[in-house]
Amino acid sequence: MAKDFYGELQLGILGGGQLGRMLIQEAINYNVNVHVLDPDKNAPCRKLCNRFECGSLSDFDTVYNFGKELDMITIEIEKVNVDALEKLEDEGVLVYPQSRVIRLIQDKGMQKQFFKQNDIPTAPFQLISSKENLYESTIALPYIQKLRRDGYDGKGVKRINGVHDIEEAFTQPSLVEELVDFEKEIAVIVARNDRGDVSTFPLVEMEFNPEANLVEFLISPSILPFEIQTQAEDIARKIAGDLQIVGLLAVEMFLTKEGQILVNELAPRPHNSGHQTIEGNITSQFAQHLRAIFNLPLGSTAARSTAVMINLLGEAKYEGLAKYDGVEEVLAVDGVFVHLYGKKYTKPFRKMGHVCIINDDRETAVKNARWVQETLKVKA
């Protein structure tokens, strides 16, 4: 930024969850004044920011009034009122990522069309306006149906195996895409500042909880062939350039059994696939996001060591005041870092925290992480 903003900048974050919480922890290093808007009065950010406002992220007046006295706004969730952000941009408030980028990514159909128009590899798809259209789909069964809007953390996705499943399909506007027989789910986080500087974090490999369809185990850096790593990073750089985004962008991809990379979805913000960067990389994803939106030089993304990230999800049969079993045991092991998100109540598969396990030896890191996974549980 042109002005000397250290200690002066008024930064707004739309969303007060764990991503906002970790962003604030990094913003403190810049003496930035942070304002947060979230609909939950008990949001994890509520006690860490300079000003917390409880209100709707989708209401035009609430978002506009929250942001009109601020210098800059960023997001930790895509489901926000983009019309209000456009008006704020018109009035001189910096919005990063830009409102047009958020608008595109809010709609998975528009995302897929963007991929097609810009020659970005992705699974074949078809846009669907109603459930009845599914009977005439040109995509062969079985396929995946995704809601165009408001799907997140595994929600808004259905596998349609046959005609008999269509009766239970989503009725809202959606898309269907070819079922990808993938070898592995991978991701690259890329950052771009307003100068046009672009930097990628090393490729990561992910495992998902089959019941909740959430990432629960991630390892960085990848040991896939160099050609795969380079291709994935090049795709992420191209997307950031085509979007002209300012900020952080998570690019989730499939690696097929034939060695092809297909882009699945985008997230224009810090992301679950980058939590391991806090301990595992020279610059964390949260520091990089701030560097990008403040138009500062981007930091080194080099890995310090092997890092494994585990999501702490609420146990399946527990709901109520959160209780963490096994914290002392896991903290007794070298290279184990526990991050709790300040959520008072747990419920099945709710993201309550994460653990990063680092070790110079990859096998040891993975072994320790599997042990942590079995030992640390979120109950009630």
Rank of each mutant, 00 (worst) to 15 (best):
V336A: 01
A232Q: 11
I139D: 03
R103W: 00
L14W: 10
D360Q: 14
P39R: 10
V163W: 05
E329D: 15
K112Q: 14
V251Q: 01
M309C: 03
M352K: 07
E86P: 04
L37W: 09
Y96T: 13
D40L: 09
N118D: 01
L313C: 09
S99Q: 04
R269I: 01
K87I: 08
P44M: 05
I73M: 08
K108Q: 00
K344M: 13
A43W: 07
G7H: 06
E207F: 04
R304K: 15
F60W: 14
S300V: 04
F201Q: 01
E26N: 07
G280W: 01
S199P: 01
I24C: 12
K323Y: 13
Q111P: 00
K79F: 07
V378F: 12
D38V: 04
Q231L: 15
S129I: 08
G320S: 12
N311T: 10
D181S: 15
L37V: 12
R370T: 09
A84I: 02
A250I: 02
S284V: 04
G299L: 05
E374K: 15
T62A: 12
D334V: 05
I105Y: 00
L312G: 04
K344L: 14
L214N: 05
A236Y: 03
G314I: 04
R148P: 00
T364C: 00
D61Y: 08
P202Q: 11
F349R: 11
S129N: 14
K351G: 07
A236N: 03
E8I: 12
E185K: 11
A307I: 01
S220R: 03
H275G: 02
K379N: 15
V95W: 02
S174M: 03
F294P: 03
I282K: 11
L70P: 05
Y143I: 13
D61Q: 14
H35K: 11
